[in-house]
Amino acid sequence: MSLAKRIIPCLDVDQGRVVKGVKFVNIRDAGDPVEIARRYDQEGADELTFLDITATHANRDTLIHVVEQVASEVFIPLTVGGGIRSVTDIRNMLNAGADKVAINSAAVVNPYFVDEAATRFGSQCIVVAIDAKKVSADNEAERWEIFTHGGRKATGIEAVAWAEKMVRLGAGELLLTSMDRDGTRSGFDLHLTKAISEAVSVPVIASGGVGSLEHLAEGILQGKADAVLAASIFHFAEYTIHQAKEYLQAQGIEVRL
């Protein structure tokens, strides 16, 4: 009788389609976002996350339309991220039916945007997305830094301190992606996940690298994540959400079944 760990399928949307690549190359088409969202809801997804991977104007309008359609028939929390840069962007997404927005690069450019957004809309709908990459050598103490632009641009900001700062400014939740692992299917960066999760008081969603159900369990048990996010293992129907939850339950993890 306690809070369930959440499984959150992630839909990367480009030009109205769900796509998935490995380290942002070899992009494969995975289908229509509304149909996929409906399927995940029926399979028992705890929330859905939509990421606009190009964040162009045209793509933004398409994504708003997708969110509107999904929100009128799927009644679980919806998070939208990718190119959220202004209070207007947030309001448009919330009006379309999103419950939370994920802020990434805009927080790096101006950390006080998170404060403004949380004051305006409430912390409960402000997720800060953190893309981190390991920068320490193998023989050094582990250290990660924040990267933007899909992992291409270094910022020199240390990840754990950044996470703490984002929470102080009003982030209600953190979406943590290991850029070393994203798309590799080799599992979460568990040390990174644990370091961040133990440093902050708000829930942490682990992301980047899930290739098997074991990886989901590791993220929760070893990484101490409150929720796990994955894309490709669900999109190509390797596993259903339900199978993933049954597996987690068998590992002693509380899930909503």
Binding site: S2, D46, D226
Partner: peptide
């Protein structure tokens, strides 16, 4: 973690609005 965020069991006491909702169903909190 605070906020209490996610799906938690709800233990009902008698009230007509719980009709057709199984006891201890999980609802979404934040």
């Amino acid at each position: 973690k605070i906020p209490h965020m996610g799906w938690n069991h709800v233990e009902q006491k008698v009230h007509p609005l719980w009709q057709n909702i199984p006891q201890n169903s999980r609802f979404y909190f934040v």
